[in-house]
Every structure is written in C-alpha cells, then in structure tokens.
Computed example of a mutant assay.
Amino acid sequence: MTTAKAAVLSGTDAAFEFADIEVRDIRADEILVKITATGLCHTDLSVQHGHIPSPFPIVLGHEGAGVVEQVGSAVTEFAVGDKVAASFDSCGHCANCDEGKNAYCLNFWPYNFGGARPDGSTALADTEGNDLHSNFFGQSSFATYAVISPRNAVKVPEDVPLELTGPLGCGIQTGAGTVLNSLGVRAGESIVVAGTGAVGLSAIMAAKAAGATTIVAVDVLEERLQFAAKLGATHTVNGKADDVADQIKAATGGLGAKYAVDTTAVPAVIENLVAGTQFGATIAAIGVTKPGATIPLGLFSGAGKSLVGAIEGDAVPQTFIPRLLDLYRAGQFPFDQLITTYPFSEMDTAIKATQTGEAVKAVLVW
C-alpha cells in the first residue's frame, strides 16, 4: 500500500478536493508510477460537468507523466526508473486491438471510463479503506502516484522534460493523429480546423508537418487565430463572421477544403465546415459533445461528404508518441509552445485559465 495525495471529484459539478488516499498494491501486470505532471484536458472537465457519465467519487487525470517506481512480476517492458507518459488504455485482445486499432478497442469504455479495473476492483481507496473509483483512462493521474497498465505507458527519452510529455497521451495526440492518421493529410492538400485550443493547434501543426499548403484556422478569439498563424495556419477566419464558409472557400481557391477537423462539437460550427469543404471532403468531429447536440442529416445525405468520429487520432501510443517527439526534435512540431505549467495546488486557477482561453494547455506539476 502506498500513500498518495490526489484531487478527488465527489460528484457532478463538484469541485476537485485534495485528499490523502491509499494506492493499493499493484498486480503482476501493472506498474506504479510516481507522477511528475499531468495535463488538464477538456475530457476531465466534461466528466466534472456531467457531459460524460462517471461513477463517483473518482480520481480523474489521463495525461500523466512520471517515473516508474514499482513493476509487476509479469511486466517485462518497463523497469524501475523509466520515464513514462501515459495514454489511453485498451484490452489488447479484441478484434480491433488485434488489428492495431487500439483507439477503437471494443472494450474502450469500461477500460477508460468504467472507474475500476476490468474485474470491477479499484486501485485506490480513501484513508478509511473505502473504494475510490480509479483507472480513469487506465491511470487516474490527478495524484502523486498512479497504477498504470503497460499497454498505455510509453517510455520517454531522457532529454525530453516530463512536464511536456503528458499531454501527448490524449489531447495533442488526438489533434495531430486525426490529421496524420485518421485523415491522412498529404503534402499539397487543404484543411480547415475549427477551434484553436490544444487539440486544434496540434492539428494545425501536424498539417504543416505533413506539407499541407492551405491550412485554415477558425476561432472566435483573435489572439488564438494569431497564435494559429504562428504555428502554421496559412489563413484565419473569425467564427463570428456571417460568411465563414465563404471565407474558407476563398482561402482554398473557391473549391473548399479537402479536409476539416472540428474540435468544438458545436453544431453551427460543424455546419460551416461542411459548407466550406469541397465535394468528396471528409470532416472529422473530435470534440466532446453536450447532450442533445444534433446536426441536420441533409448536410451529408447526397452531399458526397463524409463525417467521421476520430478517437485518439487513430493512434497506437507506443509508436505515435515517439513519432511526435521526433517531429518536435526536428523543429516541425513545437507543441511545447502550447503548454503553461501550474502547481497542482493551483488546480482551480488552471481550470479557469483553460476555460477562459488564457492557457492553451495547462499542465499540473507536483
């Protein structure tokens, strides 16, 4: 048993409360990681506000990074002292996992959102021994220690700061992977990205790295649009304008973009993307929707366009995160410019900064 400090969420719309907790002994197929830093993701906040169902009380956090402190007897891939980043979990044995489609694991929901191990046990408890829901995305890394499956852990090179690597496990991986993997954007092609938070800006950087020659950023915050231009957007469009679709088409020579990525999950924004893309275009929707959000079927029926829901950028973390780090080292994926660090004790400040747009990607550091 290991004692830890954690940010515990007791219910929908409750505040995160710091508490001492107990981390139960790891099993043969698990590793114990001392967490250095954890990215704050909109998915965590979506659980907090009830947009994603969850059992309570629970320890969230799913962009953790740290150092391996204990290794289960059946684990051969990791050793004590390894620096690791944690990503989403998967079962490793379903039909999709067997095909290398870990992001579409047929058991994705229980492994990542079930609040427990697959057998229903929890890795965490309060100081009185009562169960705390755990294993959020296979990690629950809003804590000083996390029990992690080797399937969702990735070794981090010694020369990369740990506080940078956590967000690669979800948000940044999702944005970049949607462009590079899900859509397969190639050199010379065009793409429009709606929403220039961490996910959208990662998509823009990935599009530039892929050689896309027309990259249109859409947002309602001018300072974010300026940042998007700095990171690779060739054109920017203010989403408050009345002619968003027309501006997208103008930027792409009148045809419309070949690809689109929506990170907002706002129906009106998606409608603008559909209108601003060319015949045969593919639109990837990767934002977390609010209950009841809908778009008209007529946008796609007979329009020759495809709407896809990309999960985690179709990534296999053990191969894709090193790929992103290689691009980073080569100066082609400067994701470090997105990150602002906060002490874990200032979690509320980090949340407010994320919600107001002051911080693109907040990372909480112990």
Rank of each mutant, 00 (worst) to 15 (best):
T282L: 00
T282K: 08
G292M: 04
A303M: 14
A284L: 05
G304I: 10
G276N: 12
E271S: 11
I286W: 06
G276R: 10
L273K: 11
A284P: 01
V269S: 03
T289W: 00
A281P: 00
V269P: 00
G276K: 11
S306E: 04
V274W: 05
I283K: 04
F279S: 12
I295L: 10
A293Q: 04
F279H: 14
G287E: 11
V288C: 05
I270C: 10
A284F: 06
G309R: 12
L307I: 12
P291W: 13
L307D: 02
T277S: 15
V269H: 05
G292R: 07
K305Y: 01
A293W: 09
I295T: 08
G287I: 11
A303R: 14
S306G: 05
A293N: 06
Q278F: 00
T289L: 09
T282N: 01
A285H: 07
S301M: 13
V308S: 06
Q278G: 09
T277H: 09
K290L: 03
S306R: 02
F279M: 08
A281L: 02
A275N: 07
T277N: 06
G287P: 02
K290N: 13
G298C: 02
G292N: 07
L299W: 13
G302N: 15
L273G: 02
L299V: 06
A293T: 15
A293H: 09
L297C: 14
L273I: 06
K305T: 08
G287Y: 07
A275H: 03
N272P: 07
L273C: 13
A284C: 08
A284S: 15
G287H: 07
G298I: 04
F279V: 05
T282P: 00
V274D: 05
T289R: 01
T294G: 00
K305F: 06
I283T: 15
T289C: 09
S306Q: 12
F279N: 02
S301L: 12
V269K: 03
F279C: 01
L273W: 09
G309L: 09
I295M: 13
G298E: 11
T289F: 07
T277A: 12
I283R: 05
Q278K: 08
F300R: 10
G309D: 11
A285N: 13
F300P: 03
G280R: 02
L273E: 15
I286M: 04
A303K: 14
